[in-house]
Design a protein around this nucleic acid. Sequence first.
RNA 1: GGGGGUGCGCCGAAGUUGGAGAGACGGGGCAGACUGUAAAUCUGUUGCUUGACAGCUGAGUAGGUUCGAAUCCUACCACCCCCA
Length: 376
Amino acid sequence: MNFHLQHTDPGSAARAGLLETAHGKIETPIFMPVGTHGAVRAIHQHELAQDIKAQIILGNTYHLYLRPGTEVLRQAGGLHKFMGWERPILTDSGGYQVYSLSSQRKIKEEGVTFQSHIDGSRHVFTPERAIDIQREIGADIIMALDECTPYPCDYRYAANSMQLTHRWLKRCCDRFDETFGCYGYDQTFFPIVQGSTYPDLRKQSAETIASFGREGNAIGGLSVGEPEELLYEMTGLVCDILPKEKPRYLMGVGTPVNILEAIALGVDMMDCVLPTRNARHGLLYTADGIMNMRNAKWKDDFSPIDENSTSHTSRAHSKAYLRHLIIAGEYLGAQVATLHNLCFFLWLVGEARKHIMAGDFASWKAGMVVRLNQRL
RNA sequence: GGGGGUGCGCCGAAGUUGGAGAGACGGGGCAGACUGUAAAUCUGUUGCUUGACAGCUGAGUAGGUUCGAAUCCUACCACCCCCA
């Protein structure tokens, strides 16, 4: 992997860069659609590439390990071939499931024991196993196994959890460094900063993670319900410590405003289920605010869903029609809405990048945030 | 034409040996939530008035019996079933 900064914004910590992976280049800052099971819900790979112009997508180690399983992925020649996606993929390690499936897992020094949400069977994820599975999935960027702490989280727990994540990181690195990609191309490995919402822990974690000297670094444990001020405070604090010349990935963020604020703080990569999940639930993001398509006020509004969208279906179909599809529970409603939201998120980071290159990101962002916060 | 049955909420549907229904449950409607996806999910609300307390109206229609009726009686109306 290779990363080089192309431009830094004079009015903020924002930067534009180019990330090169085994499956192609990524222009940063970038938003990465989430495709947990080897599919971005309601979107086909063709649309993902041609319409949305996604440059990289996510897969999930825990979910892909349970289904279809590493044996199938190996036979397929890796996730890229299995799903027919030739561009970069990043896999989350399962660390988020330590948080989201907290009721059915146990954390020990050795690793995490999960009870499958599918059939109740027990599975052990050690740091080594998480790396091995991600080798078999074949993602371009693979993540350390961490514990994504919940919010709120008491100091003592946050500190102990962070130390455990750091010890796991050492084991992940060792395993990664003594193994190779299964399919003839290189993979890269990102460690993850934790420390909950405690500045001293975040600082300690960021310094520890930076000391490992990996090719990129991630910030985890945020956007789990904490106030946005804390999200920004922790992100800014950590970005100031993580090396400038390496990509920074803020995990699980966020809303369009969150994304612009994070970019301003020096974040290069983000992912979030919000554009896809909310689309399925009828919530659309536009440059002029959010629209709840289920609201009765769209019932007879035959104007385009969003005349400025880069999504052709958002320009071709009316708000009234999309509302009808969503209210009627038609699959097409989820497809059109998801296509819309992802096109918007990719458009937004693309614009952010243009303005960073042009040197007027900060002022452009200030105006956009006001527009984005509107409710249509 | 004769016989039988049913009739309350936006819809379907509980409940009554006569004793306080704004009335389970489901659907629909309206609104909200969703941030490294156990989510095409979840939550609230859904007679009228009030910010709330509270009050008002309400069991097809009109009468009757009774201390008291959605529940019993009579007539009428509507719908369903059977016979002709």
